[in-house]
Simulated assay, not measured.
Amino acid sequence: MKKNSSVDLATLIIRIAFGVMYLAHGLTKLLVFTPSGTAAYFTSLGFPALLGYLVIAFEIGGGILLLAGFFTRLIALLAVIEMITISQIHSVNGWTFSNPGGGWEYPAFMAFIALALMFLGSGKLKLNRLFHHNDFNNN
């Protein structure tokens, strides 16, 4: 396998894994915690309730866009900001996410994965290549 092919395949794997996780977290907030429950949790943290709804939309929409390979760098940048914020919120609970209230290990890991995607972009293996669409990723 050529080096470029390996990088494109690795980028695809990271993008799909992150997209699936993002989509799953958004769907969990939508279907399990419910939008009003998510908004109430955000309010309990001192954020406006509206942010809870926006996060649900971002995680579901962003997950779908990542899976397709659209706007990967932008989604990844916003995800880095979100995951760093979540890491700070959970930092009082300790390192491991299995701690009561969840620790900061998992969101910190997700922040680093998002940061890698921000630098990698979508890679060549993406849906918009099938349609000859060129987003701002330039790859």
Rank of each mutant, 00 (worst) to 15 (best):
K2W: 12
N4Q: 15
V7W: 07
D8M: 10
A10N: 11
T11C: 13
I13H: 05
I13E: 04
V20W: 00
L23F: 05
A24V: 00
A24P: 01
G26E: 00
G26F: 04
T28S: 05
K29R: 09
L30I: 06
L31T: 04
T34L: 02
G37K: 09
A40P: 02
F42G: 10
F42D: 07
T43P: 02
T43D: 12
S44Y: 07
S44L: 10
L45G: 13
G46H: 08
P48H: 15
L50P: 01
L51Y: 11
Y53G: 15
L54H: 07
V55R: 13
V55Q: 11
A57T: 06
F58N: 06
F58G: 08
I60A: 10
G61R: 08
I64S: 11
L65K: 11
L65Y: 12
L65E: 12
L66M: 15
L67I: 15
L67K: 12
F71I: 05
L74T: 13
I75N: 13
I75F: 09
L78N: 09
A79S: 15
A79R: 02
V80K: 09
I81P: 02
I84C: 08
T85K: 06
S87Q: 04
Q88K: 10
I89V: 15
I89P: 03
H90D: 03
H90A: 10
V92M: 09
N93T: 02
N93V: 01
G94L: 03
G94K: 04
W95D: 00
W95Q: 00
T96S: 10
N99F: 01
P100F: 01
G102N: 02
G103Y: 06
G103C: 04
G103V: 04
P107M: 00
M110L: 08
L117T: 04
F119Q: 07
F119I: 06
G123E: 11
R129Y: 01
R129C: 02
F131V: 14
H132W: 06
N134C: 07
D135S: 15
F136H: 10
N137H: 04
N139R: 11
N139C: 01
